[in-house]
C-alpha cells in the first residue's frame, strides 16, 4: 500500500517549505491555501478546498496562530480520528496558556496531534539545506509520521512527548528573539544579550514546568536551540521587530515587518497576566509585555532589566 499524500495548510514560506521537504522525501504533497502565491510542481498539488485533504493521513498547519482555530474548524468537518495534525505556529491561547494543539483538538475530531518546533526555517526547508527541529506529540506514531514525511539526512528531526514544554518554549523563543532585537537596538553587546537570553530561558522553563512541561525541553532544540538560531541571524522577523520597538517606530510600521509582532504582543500579555495570577517571578516576560505594548518606555525597560537584583543562578 503506497503512503498517502501529506497535507499542508497555508501557502506562506513555511507551507511551501514543508511541501518541498515532503517532495524531497519522495511523497506527494497536497497544499491548501486561500492565497497559494506560487504554482504547484509534479509532486505538490494545490487543492482548492479542505475536503481534498481528507485523503491525507498527516496534515501540517503552517498558518499564523490567530488563524489556526477558524481554519481547523473548517478543515475539521472533513476529518476523523484517523488523521494526524501537526502545527508549526508559535502562540498560546486562553488564560491558562494552552498550546495550539489544544485548539486543534477542540476544533476538529482529531486527537493524534503534535507540534513542530525548534530552529527550522522556511529557507532551509525550501532549499534542503542542513537544518533540524523537534516534533512533539503524545503519540509515537505522529512523531514517526512527521519524520517519515519530511525528515532526511539534512533535516534532523528529534522527538519528544513533552508537547506542553515544546509549544511553550517555541512561544517564549519568539518573545525572547524580539527582546534580543530590542536589546540590539539599544546597543547592548553580546554579553548583555547572552545574559538576557539565558535568564529569559530560565524564566520560561520555570513557567513551562508549572504548566506541565519538562525543564529539559527548554534546554533543547525547542528552547535554546531555537533561540541560538535567532541570535545567529537566521533572518526571522522577530529580531527586526525588536529593533523597531527600540527605535520607537509606530505600531503600524512594526506590524508591517511581520504578523509575528501582533502574535508576540498577545502572547506576552497573556503570559505576564498568568504569571501575575499564579505568583511566578517573570521579570523578562513582564517587561517584554510592557515594552511591546508601549506601556513602558524602551529606555526604562532596559534600565529595569539591568538593575535587577543579582542572585544565585
Amino acid at each position: 500500500m503506497s503512503a498517502p499524500p501529506v497535507g499542508i495548510v497555508g501557502g506562506g514560506n513555511f507551507g511551501w517549505g514543508l511541501a518541498h521537504a515532503v517532495e524531497r522525501a519522495g511523497r506527494e504533497a497536497l497544499l491548501w491555501s486561500r492565497r497559494p502565491q506560487r504554482t504547484g510542481t509534479e509532486h505538490i498539488d494545490l487543492v482548492s478546498g479542505p475536503a481534498a485533504l481528507a485523503a491525507c493521513e498527516l496534515i501540517f498547519f503552517a498558518v499564523p496562530s490567530p488563524y489556526v482555530a477558524s481554519i481547523a474548524r473548517e478543515l475539521g468537518a472533513h476529518l476523523d480520528g484517523g488523521h494526524f495534525l501537526v502545527h508549526i505556529s508559535r502562540g498560546v491561547v486562553g488564560d491558562d496558556l494552552h498550546g495550539l494543539t489544544q485548539v486543534l483538538r477542540s476544533e476538529t475530531p482529531c486527537r493524534r496531534v503534535g507540534a513542530l518546533a525548534g530552529p527550522l526555517v522556511a529557507e532551509a526547508l525550501i532549499t534542503g539545506g542542513p537544518s533540524g527541529g523537534v516534533v512533539a506529540s503524545r503519540f509515537p506514531e505522529v512523531r514517526a509520521a512527521v519524520r517519515e514525511a519530511i525528515g532526511g539526512p539534512l533535516l534532523r528531526l528529534y522527538s519528544t512527548d513533552d508537547v506542553t514544554g515544546a509549544e511553550f518554549a517555541s512561544t517564549a523563543v519568539g518573545l525572547f528573539a524580539t527582546a534580543i532585537g530590542f536589546a540590539q537596538g539599544h546597543g547592548l553587546g553580546p554579553a548583555a544579550q547572552a545574559m538576557l537570553a539565558t535568564r529569559a530561558m530560565a524564566e520560561a522553563a520555570r513557567i513551562g514546568v508549572v504548566l506541565g512541561g519538562k525543564h529539559e525541553t527548554f534546554m533543547g532544540l525547542a528552547g535554546f536551540g531555537d533561540l541560538l538560531a535567532a541570535v545567529a541571524g537566521d533572518e526571522r522577523p522577530e529580531l527586526a521587530i525588536g529593533r523597531a520597538i527600540a527605535e520607537n517606530q509606530p505600531f503600524e510600521a512594526i506590524g508591517s515587518i511581520g504578523g509575528t509582532y501582533f502574535e508576540g504582543l498577545e502572547s506576552a500579555g497573556r503570559i505576564a497576566a498568568y504569571t501575575r495570577r499564579v505568583k511566578l517571578h517573570s521579570p523578562v516576560i513582564t517587561l517584554c509585555a510592557g515594552a511591546f505594548a508601549r506601556e513602558i518606555p524602551a529606555s526604562e525597560a532596559v534600565a529595569a532589566l539591568m538593575s535587577r537584583e543579582v542572585g544565585e543562578e
Partner: peptide, 12 residues
Amino acid sequence: APSGQPVDPGSY
C-alpha cells in the same frame, strides 16, 4: 465531532 456530525470512534 466539534462540527456536530457523528464521528466513527473506530477511526481513532
